[in-house]
């Protein structure tokens, strides 16, 4: 059976996790990065964090919160058989516009490579894969409806097909992110887990992000 082992979330001003019931406020993503490092949620600094686009920053921080929630440790020298599936509404639309407007403003003579690399919808998943050492499958999927439940269902199927042993399923945009750690149920572990099917059923009729977080917090408190 596939279960949810940890959940992390971020809005523009708040962050938290579900199983360890962490919650706090922050001013900007740079200060959140420092704060999460201070709290050992991030084990070491994320290289070039300041250069990431907003979606990549949100993704990295929500994954750190979710891994911490799941009690999964990592280090600079360890790699893990963990896959990552990302989704959102717009792909990398904002980064596409920023890159091409910058290129046109330079007289269509030179583009910025550092902006170009964020014009792939999968880049916000690639940055954390490098930092956390995820060696499993990496992909972005745009689902037509029920974004988060569809993502969870899809990530669960990838584990059942033995493509990887654990999956990070993350919805991230410039303004919000929620991340789930999925894995097979381990009957020898004492860590609390949540039923994947129950979470999918609970959130599939909710479209508002804040309401989803409140519902997840209720589930985590049970």
């Amino acid at each position: 059976m596939i279960v949810i082992k940890g959940i992390g979330w971020i809005t523009k001003t708040e962050y938290g996790s579900i199983i360890k019931k962490l919650q706090g406020n922050y001013n900007d993503l740079k200060s959140l990065h420092s704060h999460l490092q201070h709290e050992s949620v991030l084990k070491y600094a994320i290289k070039n964090f300041g250069r990431f686009d907003a979606a990549s920053k949100m993704t990295c921080c929500s994954i750190a919160l979710a891994l911490n929630d799941a009690g999964i440790t990592y280090s600079e020298h360890m790699k893990h058989d963990i896959g990552i599936l990302g989704t959102n509404n717009n792909g990398c639309f904002e980064s596409n516009l920023a890159y091409f407007k910058d290129y046109v403003s330079c007289g269509r003579t030179i583009a910025r490579g550092n902006l170009f690399i964020y014009t792939l919808p999968s880049t916000p998943m690639a940055e954390p894969a490098i930092y956390f050492g995820f060696q499993g499958p990496l992909l972005y999927i745009k689902f037509q409806h029920n974004q988060i439940p569809s993502m969870l269902h899809y990530a669960g199927k990838m584990i059942l097909r033995r493509e990887t042993s654990k999956m990070i399923a993350v919805e991230a945009s410039e303004e919000k992110s929620v991340c789930f750690v999925l894995g097979k149920q381990d009957n020898t572990s004492t860590m609390k887990t949540l039923s994947l099917e129950d979470i999918i059923d609970t959130i599939k009729k909710i479209s508002d992000f804040d309401e989803i977080v409140i519902m997840l917090q209720r589930k985590g408190a049970m």
């Binding site: 896959g83 990552i84 690399i117 690639a126 490098i130 995820f134 060696q135 499958p137 990496l138 990887t164």
Partner: peptide, 10 residues
């Protein structure tokens, strides 16, 4: 088989 290098962006 699907994997990631977890090494470098480009």
């Amino acid at each position: 088989g699907l994997t990631n290098d977890a090494n470098h962006m480009t």
